[in-house]
C-alpha cells in the first residue's frame, strides 16, 4: 500500500492540479483569517467594553459558533448566501471567518486583559481618550501577546478550510477526493494532500516564529 515510488510518481504527475487547489486553499485561508481577525477584534472589544448590550451580543455570538459544528455553519452560510447570489468561495470564506472570529475574539480578549491595568491609567492620565489609549497603547502590546495563540488558530483555520470541499469548492482536499475516486487510488491521493497541508503548516509556523522574534526585538 505504501509504495513510495508510486506515491512519488503520482505526486509528480498530479501537481499541476494540486497547485490550483493549493492556490484556492491559500486564498480561502488568507481571506477568512483576515476577516476573522477583524471580527475577533470587534467582539473582543465588545466583551471588555463593560457595556451590557455589547457583552450580550458577543456572548451569544461566541456561544452559537462554539456550540455548533463548523460543517453545519459552512452549509448554513452556503445555502443562505447562495440565495443572495454569493459564490461558494465567498460563502466558505465568510463561514470560516465567522467561525475563526469567535475563537480569535477570546484570544484577543485574554491578551488585552493581560496588559497591566496601569497602562490604560497612564494613557488616560495624559488626557488620551479610551479609544486612543486602546489603539496606541493597549492593542500593540496585546497583539504581541496574542501572536502565539493566534498563529495556532491560523493553523487550525488553514486545516479547517478543507471542509469547504463539501460545498463543491475545488480546494486542496477536494482535488484529492475527486482524483482519488476517479483513479480508485484514494490512499495515495490522501497521503499526497496530507503532505501539502503539512508543508503549508510548517511554512506558516516558521513565518509566525519570525514575526514573533521581530516583534519582541528591543524589549
Amino acid at each position: 500500500m505504501f509504495d513510495l515510488a508510486h506515491i512519488i510518481d503520482v505526486l509528480m504527475e498530479s501537481y499541476p492540479l494540486f497547485i490550483k487547489g493549493l492556490w484556492i486553499t491559500l486564498k480561502l485561508t488568507f481571506v477568512s483569517i483576515l476577516i476573522g481577525t477583524g471580527i475577533g477584534l470587534v467582539f473582543a472589544l465588545f466583551k471588555i467594553s463593560g457595556i451590557k448590550v455589547l457583552n450580550w451580543i458577543a456572548n451569544i455570538y461566541i456561544a452559537l459558533i462554539r456550540g455548533t459544528p463548523l460543517i453545519v455553519q459552512i452549509f448554513i452560510f452556503y445555502f443562505g448566501l447562495a440565495e443572495l447570489g454569493i459564490s461558494a468561495f465567498w460563502s466558505a470564506a465568510f463561514g470560516l471567518a465567522m467561525h475563526n472570529g469567535a475563537y480569535i475574539a477570546e484570544i484577543f480578549r485574554g491578551s488585552i486583559q493581560s496588559v497591566d491595568k496601569g497602562q490604560m491609567e497612564a494613557g488616560r492620565s495624559l488626557g488620551m481618550t479610551y479609544g486612543l489609549t486602546m489603539r496606541r497603547i493597549i492593542l500593540p502590546q496585546a497583539f504581541k501577546r496574542a501572536l502565539p495563540p493566534l498563529g495556532n488558530q491560523f493553523i487550525i483555520g488553514l486545516k479547517d478550510s478543507s471542509l469547504a470541499s463539501f460545498i463543491a469548492l475545488n480546494e486542496l482536499f477536494s482535488i484529492a477526493t475527486t482524483q482519488g475516486s476517479r483513479t480508485f487510488d484514494e490512499m495515495t491521493y490522501l497521503i499526497i494532500v496530507g503532505l501539502y497541508y503539512l508543508i503549508l503548516v510548517l511554512l506558516f509556523t516558521l513565518l509566525v516564529n519570525l514575526l514573533e522574534k521581530k516583534l519582541s526585538a528591543g524589549e
Binding site: D116, G118, Q119, E121, A122, R124, S125, L126, G127, M128, T129, I137, Q141, E219
Partner: peptide, 18 residues
C-alpha cells in the same frame, strides 16, 4: 480628557509604555 491634560500624574509602578 481636557481636565487630565492640566493634571499630570506619576504612578508608583511608572506605567511607562514598554
Amino acid at each position: 480628557n481636557e481636565v487630565r491634560q492640566k493634571v499630570g500624574m506619576v504612578f508608583q509602578h511608572f506605567n511607562l509604555f514598554p
